[in-house]
Amino acid sequence: MTQEEIDDIEAIVCDWIIAASGLDNQRVIMSHQDCPDPQGVYITLELMQTGDTLGMFPEQFINPDTGVAYESGHWRFEGTIDAYRAGAYGLLTSTRSKLLLPSFYKTLNNAGLSAHLGEAESTPNLLNRQWEQHASMLIIMHYVANPVEDSGDIGYFEHVGVTIDADHDIDTTI
């Protein structure tokens, strides 16, 4: 997976969180950056690629109807979504409940992405002898390259000749 593809995925996930959280695009950011802190409450996203082409999915497969080879694959990302400052836990809880609504989640599916979210947890930080509100939840994502058709069920993608259960983890969440 190229850096450009990863950047695209990050942008899609950021937009997904922006829509669900109601924050502007200056307050939903990738973590671990050399940058000024955003104003007010804000959300950070950390995604790390932890697997690719899981097991049975090769990087390339052939359309049985046409014989054309397709570059494809199945990638897994893990990470956290964190909220900071006053109202962090409430923001993350409400954001989590919206993220998995079909109206928001569909934007991920259309891009070949699916997600499993953990529970939001309040984990305040002690900074400069003061407690900073902080909430965190885990996120596991699957990305399927070249999805050719969304089967209509959230979380399932059809490739050419292959139907992929891209997010078996999500069944209990939705």
Binding site: D7, E10, A11, C14, N25, I29, Q33, P38, L45
Partner: peptide, 10 residues
């Protein structure tokens, strides 16, 4: 002209 976040990146 301060910087800005674009797609979550500064």
């Amino acid at each position: 002209t301060p910087g800005e976040f674009v797609n979550g990146r500064w």
